[in-house]
């Protein structure tokens, strides 16, 4: 479904600040895979997701979705296949626009946006039903500016938006990291529901090893722009935080780079 072939990304090439953020990465996802990604700060996790989403061009390699080469496709065209939730709750929604306006932007992702009304009455019914399932009391606030909502509410709405219009791929970049533990747990539960219900192929970056172990059917660990561990199936189910740390030490031969990664 998703294929990364020898992806390389170098920031500030040929300067003193040159940084190889992705070093010849290859990864193949099957339909319906839910991959969790862990790794220390600066390991290249966000860069990998951004490369897939097309935030910047890559310096080498190929990206394919369902066999179609999207390496050269601009970000807004790739959005047709890809739903995203960012770490910063401010990023995923338009603060000055209403909840229903934000949702209507998402439902038209990948479609032609012409000169017909953005929102019709039967759209509102649909949005209400979707919001009701979040159980955050948002279904009666369709014409509230998103900027007035809490971070957790915004992430939940962004998740809904990301799952609209049948994306082939859902990219979550530490989307619960900015939330308090209780809210984070709730958003994670909503994530799980949405992913299962829509059978979304998902990549979720997290700094919480336990979350990475509890969710998904596959776990990869990154370090210094490389994928250094890739654990699936039964092996993944048997994972514990300790065994994961041990595996990391064996593969990389160094102490785990980030203290944050130990939390949880």
């Amino acid at each position: 479904m998703l294929e990364l072939k020898n992806i390389t990304k170098i920031f500030n090439a040929n300067t003193v600040n040159e940084k190889v953020a992705l070093n010849d990465i290859s990864l193949t996802l099957e339909d319906g895979d839910f991959v969790t990604v862990i790794g220390g700060n600066g390991a290249g996790k966000s860069t990998m997701l951004n490369a897939i989403a097309g935030t910047f061009p890559v310096d080498g390699g190929q990206i394919l979705i369902d066999g179609t080469d999207i390496t050269k496709l601009p970000e807004h065209k790739r959005a047709k296949f890809i739903g995203r939730v960012f770490q910063d709750p401010m990023t995923g929604t338009a603060a000055d626009m209403w909840i229903e306006e934000n949702m209507s932007l998402a439902i038209n992702r990948g479609k032609k946006r012409g000169f017909t009304w953005a929102i019709k009455n039967n759209d509102r019914e649909l949005y209400k039903q979707m919001l009701k399932r979040l159980d955050l009391g948002l279904e009666d606030r369709l014409s509230t500016k998103v900027g007035l909502l809490s971070g957790g509410q915004r992430q939940a709405i962004t998740l809904l938006m990301a799952s609209m219009n049948d994306p082939k791929l859902l990219l979550l970049d530490e989307h619960t990291a900015a939330l308090d533990p209780k809210t984070a747990a709730k958003v994670l539960a909503i994530t799980r529901e949405i992913v299962e219900e829509n059978h979304l192929t998902t990549i979720m970056i997290t700094h919480n090893m336990q979350d990475a172990i509890n969710h998904g059917n596959r776990l990869i660990m990154m370090n210094a722009g490389k994928i250094i561990l890739d654990i699936k199936g039964e092996e993944k189910k048997a994972l514990t935080v300790e065994s994961l740390l041990e595996a990391f030490h064996k593969t990389s031969g160094s102490a785990f780079a980030s203290d944050r990664a130990l939390l949880g």
């Binding site: 989403a53 970000e75 807004h76 065209k77 959005a79 047709k80 995203r84 960012f86 401010m90 990023t91 995923g92 929604t93 338009a94 603060a95 000055d96 626009m97 932007l105 998402a106 038209n108 992702r109 990948g110 479609k111 946006r113 938006m161």
Partner: peptide, 11 residues
Amino acid sequence: CNEKMARAQGI
């Protein structure tokens, strides 16, 4: 309002 969001929504 939010360029990053707009592009992520295919705009």
